[in-house]
Design a protein around this nucleic acid. Structure first.
Lengths: 353, 353
DNA sequence: AGTTAGCACTCGCAAGCCGAGAGTGCTAAC
DNA sequence: GTTAGCACTCTCGGCTTGCGAGTGCTAACT
């Protein structure tokens, strides 16, 4: 007898080892784990009866449950949680895997938009789960440069290059008879005044623009549009959550019926939900694990998230991670996510140097 | 007795009507259709026995099949095919729906990249299937304008605006000590020489670039990079297949088990497969319907595609359409896809005017 | 005390069986 | 050519049964 009923305090070493073994086994097989099997597979130097006693204890403590009387045991969310707590500090990714991931990142010639997809797909591949990534988002976008290109029919394509290298494109209406030369002039003048500024700093500049002739007024209109667009960029908490390898998740036996998967997929499109999550992860500053019912949304009660922030708080940051069944190889998942996040840190530092 | 065994020639009117009714009913209910039910629901002025006789005939002709002795009948791919042939010319989308779709297209302020997503999601919503769309792709991209922006650490972001309004971004390595002013100079000079050209036309220009000083050589390197990138754009048959509303497909009862869905989803990422398909549809110039086993890939044997080309052959064209179960409301699907494709035509004409 | 062997007990699962119901195919009459 | 009638077939759900897996408990052992 190791501990009192349900305080989830530290387990005695043997119970902990057995819990660990059960989880490892269950993660590998997706089958309830029996006492017998555990003893032989993990070379425990106790009998199955003893294991059964410990199992019963762990079940009372809420760390395991039996699907029915005579199946083996299955970890509960709390069981996974304890397991995760016990390992999350230490584990480092195996050098081979580090190399493979690094190699993948080296492969592609990078346009900045592609980093996030790459991170997501790398994570998906390495963990056989769905990889998630949000673009690095600065707290306040700064305009680096703008460009105006005729786009037929009294419209121009307004191209904004932000300080972080992101490119945004809008259409703006023109007056009749504005040609590319005129646009170039406007672009140059606006670049001189607006480049380097964030949305908040633009306000006064935009107000002070001259309105002497037709061209000035068009320029002013465009400037206002830019300011508004910049505000909008900043207002959206999460631009997008790139996900890759959702197919991996569908392959897991716990998602054999479509409806479970469907709910999860549907939630992935919920910006608000992920916006909150991203904040939480960014604030915590380290890998966060959300197991089953720990997730705010019911749709996520069958899945686990392993998320890590990357980038520089307040300057440019985002989140990478994975989504998979709660029956997940947490040590590997955590160390992989952590490694990729570290890699992304390097990249962001480089890119924003 | 209307026709000989298996020549799929024109059916006599009554058989055709019954086939139509069976398909309509099956599409609505997803249940095998019984002779009795058909008579009452569709007010046929014949008895169920007669219907049974016709059904048996249709089954011999390969247009129907019974899942088992005593279930109703279910249409085969050939059945759907005949049905589709019989309606595909005429049907027009109901004005209400036209309006709704038009309205959706009016909603968003368009950056060009967004059109395709919008088309896909509109189609998904209107047909309760997955919407598909490929970006309008010109045969030979023309460069409209380029821009160079410092991106830290001896690299610059090279931004290419193509004639069709698409924006592409690459990173190019720089020499030490090139600043934004230098980049502006290079960009201006390259713009003067390269703007308006397609990849093939660039070759001679690039060869003729001066190589007098360090800056010239850098400019030449960048020009080469641009030429290469343009070639690559043209070489990729399909940039991307945007899909929206895959969740709709998962909702259909025929996709209750995950593995079927998984195969289909996996195939969606196959550029080659869709590249061929896009060609075929573009060449045909009209809505194409691929039903079940008519699809080249086995993965698609359970689904139907309704695809239509849009844009101008040879100038800029793409494909829009939907993917759903073979049990699909074809008349509605076809007319919706056709309508959206027409809408896209208008837009492309406008945009490329 | 903690551990273990032994054993009764529980439960899920697959197979087999049954009856009901659905829907057909066929035949014979209209 | 159509239809009423009916026998026949086949699925589906519910029920039972036997088996195997795995536990919980008890009593003996260290």
């Amino acid at each position: 007898m190791a501990r009192r009923k349900d305080r989830p305090g530290p387990l005695d070493p043997r119970s902990a080892a057995i819990l660990r073994a059960i989880i490892d086994e269950y993660v590998a097989t997706a089958q309830p784990v029996a006492s017998q099997a555990l003893v032989v597979k993990y070379n425990l130097d106790v009998s199955s009866a003893t294991v059964r006693n410990v199992m019963a204890e762990l079940e009372r403590a809420g760390l395991l449950r039996s699907p029915h009387t005579s199946a083996g045991r299955v970890p509960t969310d709390a069981g996974y949680r304890l397991y995760v707590e016990s390992i999350s500090e230490a584990v480092l990714l195996a050098p081979v895997e580090q190399l493979m991931i690094r190699h993948q990142f080296g492969q592609v010639e990078f346009a900045s938009e592609q980093w996030f997809r790459l991170a997501a797909s790398t994570l998906a591949g390495a963990t056989h789960s769905a990889g998630l990534a949000t673009p690095a988002k600065p707290e306040a976008s700064r305009l680096r440069r703008l460009d105006l290109v005729e786009a037929g029919d009294r419209r121009a394509s307004l191209i904004l290059v932000l300080a972080d290298g992101a490119v945004r494109q809008l259409l703006v209406p023109l007056d009749a008879g504005t040609d590319q030369a005129g646009l170039d002039g406007i672009a140059q003048s606006l670049n001189e005044r607006l480049a380097g500024l964030a949305a908040t700093e633009m306000t006064t500049v935009v107000r002070a623009l001259p309105l002497d002739d037709e061209t000035d007024r068009l320029a002013a209109r465009i400037a206002e549009r830019i300011e508004r667009a910049m505000r909008e960029f900043d207002a959206t908490t999460v631009d997008d959550v790139f996900s890759e390898g959702l197919l991996n998740v569908m392959a897991a036996p716990e998602f054999a019926q479509t409806d479970k998967v469907r709910r999860v997929f549907a939630l992935l499109e919920d910006r608000v939900y992920f916006g909150d999550l991203v904040h939480e992860v960014t604030d915590s500053g380290d890998v966060r694990v959300y197991i089953g019912a720990e997730n705010r949304s019911i749709e996520m009660h069958d899945v686990a998230l392993v998320l890590a922030p990357y980038g520089r708080r307040g300057r440019a940051s985002g989140v990478v991670g994975i989504l998979g069944p709660t029956r997940m190889a947490y040590p590997h998942a955590i160390s992989t996510v952590r490694y990729v996040s570290a890699l992304m840190n390097e990249l962001v530092d480089h890119l924003y140097a």
